Amino acid sequence: MDVKKSVEAVILDWAGTVVDFGSWAPTSIFVEAFKQAYDFDVSLAEARVPMGLGKWDHIKTLGALPEVSKRWQCRFGRSMSDADVDDIYRTFMPLQKAKVAEFSDPVPGALETIALLRREGIKIGSCSGYPREVMDILMPAAAEKGYSPDAVIASDDLQAGARPGPWMALQNVIELGIHAVNHCVKVDDSAPGISEGLNAGMWTVGLALSGNEAGMTLEEYLSASSGYKAEKRALATDKLVTAGAHYVVDTIADLPDVISDINTRLIRGEKP
């Protein structure tokens, strides 16, 4: 494959994209961390809103959601402070580390898609909203089940920061030795992950049904009616397209056709 006219690398998110169908590991732990640290309730739906951000930023953003902030002020008589965020994050981290390996199963079709991309000469990068100490647990668990990307960047690896900035995606470019950023594809199930790819100058692909926006378990997805999936797909697609995704598909299993289309557009001289 001509590197000058084809995709060189795919940069994949982790939870909800390649592993952990529905992105349940971080979501459920945010709810538990708020409860343990302050005996304060947030819903799973609220916990999903900032998904894709680094976990400290996620907690801060979650606490600033209008309904959450209103309840917090009624309970404590003040807005959530950075010190409160620190407390919740300190509670969150051991809970997440204890549970993350349980959510390391590959999304159906992920391993087959990645194998196909590698046969095409495409490198596999990755980045995550998880910090390095969580990734150090998740990576070997995923490797045992067949997934080992060529590069892994965690949310706290870089001094510049994490999503929605471009830095983690661009660090993949450096570590993988990619020649052209516009020959990279960022794949994610969250709006901040799409923004990350756009800010890095990459093509972006949103995943509507395997990740955070749809919020289904694998069992729910497999048993869902076509009508229910259509409703979930429409809601998730709207959010991902609004974030700027060039493409939106159901799961990573649908990625090969997208890569083929991007290759055609690259041959025509198009850029993201």
Results as ranks from 00 to 15, higher is better:
207 L>D: 03
214 A>T: 07
226 S>P: 05
237 T>Y: 01
59 I>K: 02
194 I>V: 14
115 A>M: 03
109 G>Y: 10
76 F>K: 06
115 A>T: 11
83 A>G: 00
218 L>G: 09
51 M>N: 07
189 D>P: 10
61 T>F: 06
50 P>G: 05
95 L>K: 09
107 V>A: 08
138 L>K: 11
140 P>Q: 14
18 V>G: 05
148 S>N: 11
246 H>Q: 05
217 T>H: 13
79 S>Y: 01
141 A>I: 13
162 A>G: 07
100 V>K: 09
227 G>M: 11
27 T>S: 12
77 G>M: 05
271 K>S: 10
81 S>T: 15
260 S>I: 03
112 E>Q: 15
117 L>G: 02
98 A>I: 07
197 G>V: 06
131 P>L: 08
97 K>Q: 15
128 S>W: 12
230 A>H: 13
72 W>K: 07
194 I>A: 01
236 A>C: 11
261 D>S: 03
123 K>L: 15
264 T>V: 01
242 T>Q: 15
172 N>P: 01
58 H>F: 06
106 P>H: 12
95 L>M: 13
138 L>H: 09
135 M>Y: 04
118 R>I: 08
222 L>H: 13
219 E>Q: 15
216 M>V: 12
148 S>K: 13
126 S>M: 08
208 A>L: 07
174 I>N: 05
127 C>F: 15
104 S>H: 12
105 D>C: 11
26 P>E: 11
129 G>I: 11
81 S>I: 00
128 S>V: 15
257 D>N: 06
254 D>V: 09
171 Q>G: 00
96 Q>R: 08
29 I>W: 03
213 E>R: 04
211 G>C: 03
207 L>S: 04
106 P>N: 12
136 D>H: 12
93 M>N: 05
73 Q>K: 14
112 E>S: 13
267 I>K: 03
69 S>A: 15
258 V>F: 04
238 D>G: 07
115 A>G: 07
7 V>M: 00
250 D>I: 03
200 A>T: 13
6 S>Q: 04
179 H>A: 14
10 V>D: 02
116 L>S: 10
125 G>F: 02
89 Y>R: 00
175 E>I: 00
